[in-house]
């Protein structure tokens, strides 16, 4: 039987790895996305809730056994929220932070936690710069930059 909990195990490993290695971003939250919203959601209190990094598992695709192994393809998205300070160059600042995250996972990538969780191959799929999120009153000090890093992880295990 395929290991149907692989997505959860790898996701937990990603969160652990990111939490341990992204302290430079000053994250106040680094964990699974609590809901399953189809797009970025404005944090209710962006002053207290940003910067934050949320993991979303989109797809867990399990292939039939190939050569007595099971191949599972996992597609994750990291959603990064950054509170804007009026007057700053928000797109560049967001891009810099996203690069920090991308470099962590796809630079010298050999995270033991992921290997233990069964991940064999990881590659970035896409980095998306979303439109910024604004409070309904459009207070300039409460605008939030949002970026998303899509990644694919392949896991190969014994059938």
């Amino acid at each position: 039987m395929p290991n149907t909990s692989r997505g959860l195990a790898v996701g937990n490993a990603l969160v652990t790895f990111a939490t341990a290695n992204l302290s430079g971003l000053g994250l106040v939250y680094c964990d699974w996305q609590k809901g399953m919203a189809p797009g970025p959601v404005y944090p209710i209190d962006p002053v207290s809730d940003c910067p934050r990094l949320e993991l979303r598992l989109y797809v867990e695709e399990i292939d039939a056994a190939v050569a007595r192994s099971t191949r599972t393809l996992l597609k994750f998205g990291w959603w990064y929220y950054r509170l804007q300070t009026p007057g700053q160059d928000h797109q560049k600042l967001l891009r810099t932070d996203l690069e920090t995250i991308v470099n962590l996972f796809f630079g010298n990538f050999n995270p033991l936690q992921l290997e233990l969780a069964g991940a064999n191959f990881t590659r970035p799929a896409q980095t998306v710069i979303h439109d910024d999120l604004r409070h309904e009153f459009d207070d300039p000090t409460l605008r939030v930059s949002v970026g998303e890093i899509l990644m694919e992880i392949a896991c190969i295990g014994q059938a």
Partner: peptide
């Protein structure tokens, strides 16, 4: 209610 957080309200 806060999205994704049942403990807080705006």
């Amino acid at each position: 209610k806060a999205p994704g957080d049942d403990s807080r309200y705006a």
